[in-house]
């Protein structure tokens, strides 16, 4: 049995859906929170603090019957930028891709600026992702302020 399969067997296998692997240990609960915001009835199987074959620990989440698109995955990118997404059909991985930072987040996060007009109007929040020297910032399309990713990660764990 390969290392990857052995990891996956630590939590119950799913017939069809998505496995998010290589989540930094401790970030799994944040991602579960985001998933439940998008779909309150989502069926999850979770492994926390599993041994990672690179050494150290990781979290892993299996999501029944929900095959992630790149844009579903991108919404999780701030919390686990190096995680991988495995799409499962009939107990097999049929597609695998890394979570990548998108260029934009639309309607995902509330603007941390409490005086931003998006809090009072029927409009989706919109952020452009800025990456410089390994630091990630999100710049609001409306109030034009740029915020460190940590502010959004806190929102994610609400």
């Amino acid at each position: 049995m390969s290392a990857m399969n052995r990891d996956k067997m630590l939590v119950e296998a799913i017939q069809s859906g998505t496995v998010i692997d290589h989540i930094p240990a401790g970030k799994g609960l944040t991602i579960i929170g985001r998933l439940q915001l998008k779909n309150a009835e989502v069926r999850l199987t979770v492994g926390l603090n599993l041994p990672s074959h690179g050494g150290g620990l990781k979290d892993l989440i299996k999501i029944d019957e929900w095959r992630f698109t790149e844009s579903d995955a991108a919404e999780m990118a701030l919390f686990a930028p190096r995680a991988t997404v495995n799409i499962i059909e009939d107990y097999r991985v049929v597609r695998k891709f890394p979570i990548g930072l998108p260029e934009r987040f639309v309607g995902v996060f509330a603007c941390p600026n409490t005086n931003c007009i998006t809090h009072n109007e029927p409009v989706d929040s919109r952020f452009r992702v800025l990456v410089a020297d390994d630091a990630v910032k999100l710049k609001c399309h409306y109030c034009e302020r740029a915020f460190a990713d940590s502010l959004f990660i806190e929102q994610g764990s609400l």
């Binding site: 603007c111 931003c116 007009i117 409306y142 109030c143």
Partner: peptide, 13 residues
């Protein structure tokens, strides 16, 4: 002119 940031961008849209 409006007291909230982003109001003009929203108005333009």
């Amino acid at each position: 002119r409006h007291p909230q940031e982003g109001s003009a961008r929203l108005a333009a849209e």
